[in-house]
């Protein structure tokens, strides 16, 4: 017997195209994106160390690149990504102990991660400006 459904595969109902972004999914994908960004940051860290081991000239070149406005914007981005990933990671470690799963706790800790990351980024850059001042 011919099966009409066999003519064409069943369509898949939309997933990410239609599902509303929520604090849960947004912070999860943020943790992933910041993790990817920090992987790139880890490469920069190695470049920086290798340049310092090579000599003053190479080190000055890398320091110059970091001091340029592009470098400073990237560094600001890395700082925020670092604090988001750090705070988000601590939130995950708490969950791994089977704590903080009440919906209210999930949302409270989520917003706390956002607020703490912003505050720590501002604090780090303020401190850096005073130190380097």
């Amino acid at each position: 017997m011919p099966d009409p459904a066999a003519k064409r595969p069943r369509p898949l109902s939309p997933n990410i195209q239609n599902y509303r972004p929520q604090l849960t999914s947004v912070l999860s994908v943020t943790n992933r994106i910041t993790g990817l960004a920090l992987s790139a940051g880890a490469v920069v860290l190695v470049l920086w160390l290798v340049s310092a081991a090579t000599g003053p000239q190479a080190y000055a070149a890398v320091q110059g690149a970091i001091a340029s406005w592009v470098g400073q914007v990237a560094l600001l981005g890395f700082t925020f990504a670092f604090f988001l990933h750090l705070c988000g990671g601590i939130r995950h470690l708490v969950w791994d102990t089977v704590h903080g799963f009440e919906l209210r706790a999930i949302y409270a800790s989520g917003w706390a991660v956002v607020a703490a990351s912003l505050a720590l980024t501002v604090a780090a850059w303020t401190a850096s400006l005073f130190m380097g001042g």
């Binding site: 595969p9 369509p11 898949l12 939309p14 990410i16 195209q17 239609n18 599902y19 509303r20 972004p21 604090l23 919906l103 209210r104 999930i106 949302y107 409270a108 917003w111």
Partner: peptide
């Protein structure tokens, strides 16, 4: 806002959907 129970419907949402092309990855 803080969601306290799963039946809560947010009064306002910043994003209705993720800012991705409508047919990205859709067969």
């Amino acid at each position: 806002m803080i969601i306290e129970s799963s039946n809560q419907v947010p009064r306002a949402t910043l994003l209705k959907r993720f800012p991705l092309p409508r047919n990205l990855g859709v067969a």
